[in-house]
């Protein structure tokens, strides 16, 4: 087994063989999750706390289910408003939770880097469930697994990521993961929604969606957040849909067997045509949700193993 990380804060610090290890283990959990009896005891007796400073139904449910299927005691903390409004700092919240001896802390926070800060202050394994515009590593891992299972490989593929790249942590983590696995990445979107310095990312950048989709194996759509209308990023939803919404006509530029992905929740008619999203021959959006649970089980399992090993070594007086 090759997975050395203590926390899963981002894809940035993972090596390709660590990514492969997560995906290989996740494959076994996909099989498990399709059985009637889905329970293992990999995390039996361990405590997992889901701390979401930002509302999320889907990701939180996925992490909760993953933890429960691994046998962990799972607690959800909705910290989005309560303690923050009372003036408690992130560090204090973390220290309070740390005193309850959790083993796995799953954190989502609206500020980039907040999860890194928190990880410095606690002595359990921390999983980043999305921090600001920075990273969303389990999303990239589940996307990687979905691609690998659909395409039979996760390398030498042409992957087009379309939409609001600038504000997307999903895009950030996917860029890093797909790059590490040696794929060809194209970024498609209006220049106002491209991150600064995008030309140094080692990707091809397109503002013409048709040109960008030409010959793509994978089409990854991103959610357009409604609040982007306010900051003069795009003129209107209908113009955005006209130029960057994925419909059958534009998808025809990709390879005939190209798969369509979306991290959800979708805005049908804004970034993606409803019929394409529901086309079982092209869309793998439901598979992504399924892979999400399996990948999170694999990531937590591996982190728990490292945590047990580190604590065992500590108890034996070995420097780690």
């Amino acid at each position: 087994m090759s997975f050395r990380a203590r926390h899963l804060l981002g894809i940035e610090h993972l090596a390709p063989d660590e990514i492969r290890t997560v995906l290989d283990l996740a494959d076994t959990y996909v099989d498990l999750n399709r059985r009637t009896i889905k329970r293992t005891d990999a995390l039996a007796g361990m405590t997992q706390i889901n701390m979401f400073f930002e509302n999320s139904t889907r990701t939180q449910a996925s992490f909760e289910l993953a933890g429960k299927r691994l046998g962990a005691d799972v607690m959800n903390m909705a910290v989005s408003q309560s303690s923050v409004k009372k003036g408690e700092t992130l560090i204090d919240t973390a220290l309070t939770l740390n005193a309850m001896h959790p083993d796995l802390l799953v954190v989502r926070h609206p500020s980039s880097g907040a999860v890194n800060l928190l990880a410095e202050k606690v002595n359990c394994a921390v999983l980043n469930a999305g921090d600001g515009r920075h990273e969303h590593p389990t999303q990239a891992l589940l996307d990687g697994l979905t691609i690998r299972r659909a395409k039979g490989r996760l390398q030498r593929l042409t992957v087009a990521i379309c939409g609001d790249i600038a504000h997307s942590r999903v895009a950030r983590s996917n860029l890093l993961l797909l790059g590490k696995m040696e794929n060809r990445i194209r970024l498609i979107g209006p220049p106002t929604l491209m991150p600064a310095g995008v030309n140094e990312f080692g990707c091809e950048v397109f503002d013409d969606m048709r040109a960008g989709l030409e010959g793509a194996d994978v089409v990854m759509m991103l959610r357009l957040q409604k609040e982007r209308m306010d900051g003069a990023f795009i003129p209107s939803e209908r113009e955005y849909y006209h130029r960057y919404g994925l419909d059958a006509e534009k998808l025809a530029f990709a390879k005939p067997d190209a798969i369509v992905m979306h991290p959800g929740p979708m805005n049908r008619g804004v970034e993606i045509d409803g019929e394409i999203a529901d086309d079982i021959n092209r869309s793998v959006i439901q598979e992504q949700v399924e892979m999400g649970v399996a990948v999170r089980m694999a990531a937590m399992d591996l982190l728990a193993r490292n945590l047990k090993a580190a604590r065992g070594a500590e108890a034996a007086g070995v420097m780690v």
Binding site: E12, D131, H134, G197, V198, F201
Partner: peptide, 8 residues
């Protein structure tokens, strides 16, 4: 590039 990678 740095700002973009850090999401700041």
């Amino acid at each position: 590039k740095f700002a973009s990678l850090r999401g700041l």
